[in-house]
Write a protein that binds this DNA or RNA. Structure first.
Length: 881
RNA sequence: GGGCGCUUAGCUCAGCGGGAGAGCGCUACGUUGACAUCGUAGAGGCCACUGGUUCAAUCCCAGUAGCGCCCACCA
């Protein structure tokens, strides 16, 4: 017996462990069953479930459940990412609160704390994912710092190093002065900020001044040149001369460089090679030294004079400006807005800093990655992401993979006393290399840094399958079939997986990438903690059930880049689950039981033939939409069918039968209703796994829906069952009932009144249908009797197709009301006739438009004219009454 | 500066060459025995603007305006 109402949380907490323990999530990877592989984008271990996770895991689970029901051997491999910066920050802060400081306790001790934290709290997100009802193979769960995955990282780096695709280089990086590490270009947020452009005079060696413009006066202490445009007439004479740098007294040359834009500022650019990306390039071109004036915390260092030495960069800026002002060297200040580079993690302004880091030659690796998308071997969905993908890869810069952090994969590089580098699997091997190199034993020091988290994430499609060892998983599941992820990590992750897959597996990591939209609030704003508009998916699951949340997200997963999430939608889909639940209760109440031997296509009654055909149509539609990743359309089809067809009409059609006496009809209808409900549950299961599983177990006597077979007819191209008479008959019936209801409402007939209906036009088909469907028509349209006879005076016409029915609405027909109703109907019809007639009278239309379009218009015109005639007749009768 | 996208009912969004759609919200009315987390009916739209292509444009093309995102740059 089904409970009176669906209780999502009780059902969820009961079913999920049942599924997980049954082993259905784990693929056999044996025999020749076709398999399907999808890798879960590993969430950060520090993460907690947000709407973005909820969206992309829901979509993954829909595909996975569907493929599994189709009989495929599905590997959905889950896991988490060690997220070096985020995790290190989190644990470090936590420890600081306890009075424990990272630098004090040292690397090994600190890492012990991180691992401990990871064991205790790292699983949070994985448990929250379970609440979403997702069905990955938890037995194969991976963590990016597992031994096997760490081996893969090492091997990849060593190989890249041997191929000279990984190398050490000294260049400018974006330096985070709070986290004390380099970050990649992608981790920089450029934020529009108000600032000031100052103009500063530098005295010339030979007298006079040159005026430069800058937004960062403090960097002048590191200036080693001034650039002017080679064709700028104003400064031509100065090229080759020297200016004297205030405070420092350094002689700096005036050089000619295209970088200088005569239109901007004063046309003279101060060059600080160590602290500006453009200046670095200019410096290289003119052999200007790069003088580093900051320490790791962006304080002025020993290369700067007193009183600035040791000051913070912003304090120094203030003091320098004051001094310049006092010295009469500050000659202008202009308010401007410019974009400043903020660190994504620490939200501090980044400092370009000259350091030695490890880089990967991304340009070389990018070429095959470009090709496989060009060739269509990897399909991006929606397709327009290709532009973004190509644009970035074609302009790719070397990828800085080292981070000055402790938590992560430590770089397997050792240095000899003379800084000679030995890249090796372990210290022993490095020693061996060193001995060969030096001819004696030396003390080696391992690189202090770890790899960028994305470096290990890039290997996820094969490192998780056991690579570099050979394994069944690797054999069967690479390349994968699908990746579903947010478009915000296309560069961070997707392109890098393709690059690494091509380089190390010689093959693509996946065939299709589906990019999800970004979840925003109902006003389209980005969710952020500071705005306070973050929606917690767990809260919605508690309130409305997981199924409702999943269905909402899938319904909203259209083709757009944003997905505006609103509460009322979830509520609506909670109601949808309730609706289904109640329909199932109705079936149960009327003893609709599944009969495995029953062939639905053998049904005799029109309503049964009709619903069988309709549900099959639905199945094909759902599959078509799923194949195109149109989750929204699949949801719409399911919702419309279940509520708008099955509940609104079919269930109502069965009532006269269930409350009647005909046991033969009852038997058939019970079987068809049960079968149809079963089909609905199958088709809906990937989207709403819990309510469907619960109902199916009830309907089927304990069978599991998650491991049931997907309906055979529901594959595109399969021939569908059809019964034309039944289809058309039921469609007609629905039209008649709707029309009568509309007239009744229009005429303010009390809902409880049972009215007689007259039909006297003698259309044989109509008479036949009235006989066949009379009972249900009466019940649903509140008709007392159907008279196959002429109508008494003063009746209200009901027009359906070419036929007029007359409805007797009681003693008093409000003539005025009725006249108005008919007149406005007539007006609509006349307008339509005018339009159609005009169109059909144009020779160009008749000659040039396709024949079927012309014919359709002619038919519509004929129908409209007939309706017009009927309406006019009815109105005339009204006038005479 | 380069690229991508959006503008359709009060709200959130589908549709994308031949009759303007859905959900939510709103209004009126509620009858039997699945369901008030419901039922029935209804109101509500120059499909941003201007041109062009076409027999036909919400849909294709060009431009304009507004909004959003990504990338690069800003001494």
């Amino acid at each position: 017996m089904l409970e009176k109402t669906f209780n999502p949380s009780a059902v969820e907490s009961k079913l999920y462990p049942e599924w997980e323990q049954s082993g259905v999530f784990t693929p056999a990877l044996k025999g020749d069953k076709p398999n399907f592989t999808i890798m879960m984008p590993p969430p950060n271990v520090t993460g907690s479930l947000h709407m973005g996770h909820a969206l992309n895991h829901t979509l993954q689970d829909i595909i996975v459940r569907w493929k599994r029901m189709k009989g495929m051997d599905v590997l959905w491999l889950p896991g988490t990412d060690h997220a070096s910066i985020a995790t290190q920050m989190l644990v470090e802060r936590k420890l600081e609160k306890e009075g424990i400081f990272r630098k004090k306790i040292g690397r090994d001790e600190f890492l012990k704390h991180v691992w401990k934290w990871k064991e205790l709290h790292g699983g949070a997100i994985v448990h929250q994912l379970r609440r979403l009802g997702v069905s990955p193979d938890w037995s194969r769960e991976r963590f990016t710092m597992d031994d096997g995955l760490s081996d893969a990282v090492k091997k990849v780096f060593i190989d890249l190093y041997k191929k000279k695709l990984a190398f050490k280089d000294k260049r400018l990086v974006n330096w985070d002065p709070i986290l004390l590490t380099a970050v990649s270009d992608l981790e920089v947020n450029n934020v529009e900020t108000k600032g000031t452009m100052w103009q500063i005079r530098y005295p010339m060696e030979n007298g006079g001044y040159i005026t430069v413009a800058t937004t960062r006066p403090e960097t002048m202490l590191g200036d080693t040149g001034i650039a002017v445009h080679p064709e700028d007439e104003r400064y031509k004479d100065l090229i080759g001369q020297y200016a004297i740098l205030p405070f420092v007294g350094r002689k700096i040359p005036i050089v000619a460089d295209e970088h200088s834009d005569p239109e901007k500022g004063t046309g003279c650019v101060k060059i600080t090679p160590a602290h500006d990306f453009n200046d670095f390039e200019v410096g290289k071109r003119h052999n200007l030294p790069a003088i580093d004036i900051f320490d790791e915390r962006a304080r002025l260092n020993e290369n700067t004079p007193e009183p600035f030495r040791g000051m913070d960069r912003f304090a120094a800026r203030k003091l320098i400006l004051e001094q310049l002002e006092a010295d009469g060297l500050l000659v202008g200040a202009e308010e401007i807005t410019h974009a400043l580079p903020y660190s994504e993690r620490s939200e501090v302004i980044l400092e370009p800093r000259l350091t030695e880091q490890w880089y990967v030659d991304a340009h070389t690796l990018a070429q095959p990655a470009i090709k496989v998308v060009e060739d269509g071997r990897i399909k991006l969905v929606p397709e327009n992401w290709e532009n973004t993908y190509f644009q970035w890869l074609r302009n790719i810069q070397p990828w800085c993979i080292s981070r000055q952090l402790w938590w992560g994969h430590r770089i397997p590089a050792w240095y000899g006393p003379d800084k000679h580098v030995f890249v090796a699997d372990d210290e022993q091997e490095a020693q061996a290399q060193a001995e060969k190199h030096y001819g004696k034993t030396v003390t080696l020091v391992q690189d202090e840094d770890v790899f960028d988290t994305w470096f290990s994430a890039a290997l996820w499609p094969f490192s998780t399958l056991g690579w570099p060892e050979k394994s069944v998983e690797l054999e069967k599941c690479y390349p994968g079939d699908l990746l579903i992820t947010g478009h915000d990590i296309i560069f961070f992750w997707v392109v890098r997986m393709v690059m690494m897959g091509m380089e190390f597996m010689g093959d693509i990591p996946f065939r299709t990438v589906y990019f999800t939209a970004l979840v925003r609030d109902e006003k389209g704003q980005k969710m952020s903690k500071t705005k306070g508009n973050v929606i917690d998916p767990l809260e919605f699951m508690d309130l409305y059930g997981t199924d409702a949340l999943r269905f909402s997200l899938a319904s909203l997963a259209g083709t757009g880049r944003n997905l505006n999430f609103s509460k009322s939608q979830v509520e609506g889909y909670r109601n949808f689950a309730t609706k289904l639940w109640n329909a199932a209760r109705f079936c149960e109440h009327h003893q609709c039981k599944l009969d495995p031997d029953f062939n639905p296509e053998s049904a005799q009654l029109a309503i049964n033939k009709w619903i069988v055909a309709e549900v099959q149509k639905l199945g094909q539609d759902v599959v078509k939409q799923l194949e195109n990743y149109r989750f929204d359309e699949a949801c719409a089809a399911l919702y419309q069918f279940i509520w708008g067809q099955f509940c609104d009409w079919y269930v109502e059609f069965t009532k006269p039968i269930f409350f009647g006496e005909n046991t033969i009809e009852q038997t058939e209808t019970r079987a068809v209703a049960a079968w149809t409900l079963g089909q609905i549950l199958h088709l809906l299961h990937p989207f709403m796994p819990f309510v469907t599983e619960e109902l199916w177990q009830d309907l089927s006597g304990g069978k599991k829906l998650i491991s049931s077979a997907w309906p055979a007819y529901a594959s595109t191209g399969e021939k569908l069952y059809k019964d034309k008479d039944a289809q058309e008959g039921i469609q007609w019936l629905i039209k008649v009932i709707s029309e009568i209801r509309a007239v009744r409402a229009d005429m303010n007939v009390p809902a409880s009144a049972q009215l007689p209906l007259y039909y006297a036009e003698g259309n044989e088909l109509v008479s036949k249908r009235l006989t066949a469907y009379g009972e249900v028509l009466c019940k649903m349209a509140r008709i007392s009797t159907i008279e196959n006879a002429g109508a008494p005076e003063g009746m209200v016409p009901v027009l359906v197709d070419q036929d007029t029915f007359l409805l007797q609405i009681g003693e008093v027909v409000d003539l005025k009301e009725e006249k108005q109703r008919l007149s406005s109907k007539l007006k609509d019809i006349q307008k339509e006739i005018l339009q159609l007639d005009g169109k059909l009278k144009q020779p160009d239309f008749v000659n040039k438009a396709p024949a079927d379009v012309v014919e359709k218009n002619q038919l519509r015109l004929a129908e409209a004219q007939l309706q017009q005639q009927k309406l006019e007749t009815a109105l005339a009768r009204l006038q005479s009454a």
